[in-house]
Amino acid sequence: MTSAIPQKSKPLPEGIYCPVISIYKSTPRQEIDLDASYNFFSYLIRAGIDGLVLAGTTAEAVLLSPAERQDLLRVARKAADDLGLKEYPLVAGISGQSTNETIRLAHEAQNAGADYGLLLPPNYWAGAVNKDVILGFYREVADNSGIPIVIYSFPAVCNGIDMNSDILSELAQHPNIVGVKLTCGNAGKVTRLTQEYTSSQFAVHAGSSDWLLPCLIGGGAGCVTGIANIFPKSVTRLNDLWNDVRMNINESRKLQGLIAQAEKACKQGIACTKYGTDFFLGRKIGINDEQAFWPRRPYKPCTKETQDWVVGVMEHLVEIEHSLQMKYV
């Protein structure tokens, strides 16, 4: 039965969100390259990406300083504003290990231009994180945040903490909790939550594009996907096919399979995602320094063998990507 709760005052828009990579200068300290970031954000927006996620897992958020997080948000907001998209949605990672720290991060993100906050559960002492702790944490942050909260379910980076659909459903009833990103890959959560809530009440997004079509078929609102850093037009095309009432289901299935094949490289880690962005898109957006796409140390870029594998599993999308038009010019 559909919930009777009112729609949220600021629902999370449906569509494709890109958790953007961080681009660095090739200096000993690997400072953030804000000019290159502006060009990259502008390209993704013009390509039709529906929203950007800043300071998320793919952005190496745990390796970014608070000032860098805020600078990237301001640059993303300027990129959208300069394209005339004053209401373009920006989602900021605000995950902290304490309630106090998380509320501070939410306030800083709001001041820097974020519209929503993406929030993992506390997980440092996983054995102490039970249902009551999770519910209390999200509710208190939501009570004290000036921006709506999007729950981030990603057990692989949270010491195995996995929020089931019952917990998510309870949190969905909070007026300032507007959706969830399911990087847990559990399609059952999609269908259970969408049976209860509309997207304007609580939006359910897949955490990667290799199950975008199953998520949409199950009533989901879209996805947040690393492959959008590399092939943004292809992923948005798949979403558009689904949204078209005259869609060609066979074309959708074919494109879903191609995107899923490319996405598996992103699942091997951030270094692969960044190398793919460099190889297929870097020169196109004017970034000619391959080190700009290296992970922040101490983490290492891909080996030559891995680079060749990444290109091999992604290159089948190049022709499709190049055939599609930019959404904004």
Rank of each mutant, 00 (worst) to 15 (best):
T57C: 04
P232M: 09
Q110D: 05
V318A: 06
D244I: 02
E101M: 14
Q110W: 07
V20W: 00
Q268V: 00
F280Y: 00
P214L: 02
E196H: 11
T57Y: 09
E31S: 12
H322M: 13
L34W: 00
S3W: 01
K181M: 07
H322R: 15
N164A: 03
N130E: 12
A187C: 12
I32L: 15
G160N: 08
G269E: 02
V20G: 01
G286E: 03
G113L: 14
S95P: 13
L72D: 06
Q256K: 02
L120D: 10
Y24H: 07
L182V: 02
D278C: 11
S26M: 00
I259F: 06
N248A: 05
I227K: 02
A67G: 00
K189D: 12
D35K: 10
F293E: 03
C272L: 10
H322F: 08
L63K: 12
I21F: 01
I147Y: 10
F280L: 00
Y124I: 12
Y43R: 10
I21H: 02
D33S: 07
F41W: 07
A67R: 15
T277H: 04
K78R: 15
V318H: 04
W309Q: 08
I230L: 07
L258Q: 15
P11Y: 04
D308R: 14
I103W: 09
L83R: 05
G257F: 01
Q268N: 11
L119I: 13
M326R: 09
K131G: 01
Q7D: 14
T225D: 14
P295A: 03
L212R: 11
A109E: 13
D71P: 00
Q70A: 14
K327G: 01
C184Q: 12
L182W: 01
S209K: 00
R74H: 05
W309H: 07
E263S: 08
N250A: 14
P122N: 03
A292E: 06
V91K: 11
G84Q: 11
F293D: 04
Q201Y: 01
I285T: 07
T2V: 14
W242E: 00
Q110S: 14
